[in-house]
Simulated assay, not measured.
Amino acid sequence: MFTGIVEELGEVTAVEDLGDSSRFRLRGPVVTEGARHGDSIAVNGVCLTVVDHEGDEFTADVMAETLKRSSLGALTTGSRVNLERPTAVGARLGGHIVQGHVDGTGRILARTPSENWEIVKVSLPADLTRYVVEKGSITVDGISLTVVEAGPDHFTVSLIPTTLALTTLGHKQPGDPVNLEVDVIAKYVERLLGDRAREAGK
C-alpha cells in the first residue's frame, strides 16, 4: 500500500522491449536505498516489482496489461517519473490509501497558473466519473491530490509549489497522459451497496 506522497522524481534510464512486455531501468537514489529483489515501488502510481537493483538504479518488468491500462507505455529513456516506496506499518498516512492499481488514464487538458499555485484540468474516463467528487481524493501519476472541481468528463486539482517542483505534474503539458487511481473506498462502498440492493430485490 502507498499513500500518494511522492518520495522523489526519478528517471527512466533504459527501456527494453520484450515483445509482450517491457523491462524498465529507473534511477532513484532514495527508493533504491535498502531495496531488495521482490520489493514494490510505485512508478507514476503503478506498483512495480523490483527485479534487480544496482547502485541507485533498479529494473522492473511491466506486463502487456499494465502497458495497456496505464501511461507507462509512453515512457522513454530520459522520462521523469514519480517514485514512492510502500508505506511502513505504523507510519503516518500523509495522503490517502493508494493501491498502485491504475484504474485508467486521463490527459492534461489545461494549466492555469496563479501567483502561488496552479490549477490543472485533467480529462476523466466516463467509467470513473462516479467515483470522483469535489474535495475527494484522487491519485494522478501516483500523487495524492484533492479534487477541486468534478465535472462530467474532467476534474481539476490545485498544485502547490512543492508538488510542481518535485513531481511530474510540474512538467507535463496539455495532451500529456497521466495515470489515474480513484479512491478505493468509493469502489468498495459501491460494491457493498449494489450487493445489498440485489439482496433486497430477491
Rank of each mutant, 00 (worst) to 15 (best):
E54N: 04
G55M: 02
D56Q: 09
F58E: 01
A60I: 05
D61G: 01
E65Q: 13
L67D: 02
K68A: 13
K68L: 08
S70T: 15
L75A: 05
T77G: 14
T77V: 14
G78C: 11
G78Q: 03
S79M: 09
R80G: 11
V81L: 11
E84G: 09
P86Y: 12
P86V: 12
T87M: 15
T87S: 11
V89A: 15
G90C: 03
G90V: 01
A91M: 02
R92C: 02
G94M: 05
G94F: 07
G95I: 04
G100E: 10
H101G: 13
H101S: 10
V102G: 14
D103F: 07
R107K: 14
R107T: 08
I108W: 11
T112A: 13
T112P: 00
S114H: 15
W117V: 07
E118A: 10
I119H: 00
V120C: 10
L124R: 11
T129Q: 15
T129N: 07
T129R: 15
Y131C: 08
V133L: 10
V133P: 03
S144P: 01
L145N: 03
P152A: 15
F155G: 07
S158E: 09
L159D: 01
P161I: 05
L166P: 00
T168I: 11
L169P: 03
G170Q: 05
K172E: 01
G175Q: 08
V178Y: 10
V178W: 11
L180I: 14
E181H: 05
V182R: 11
V184H: 09
I185R: 12
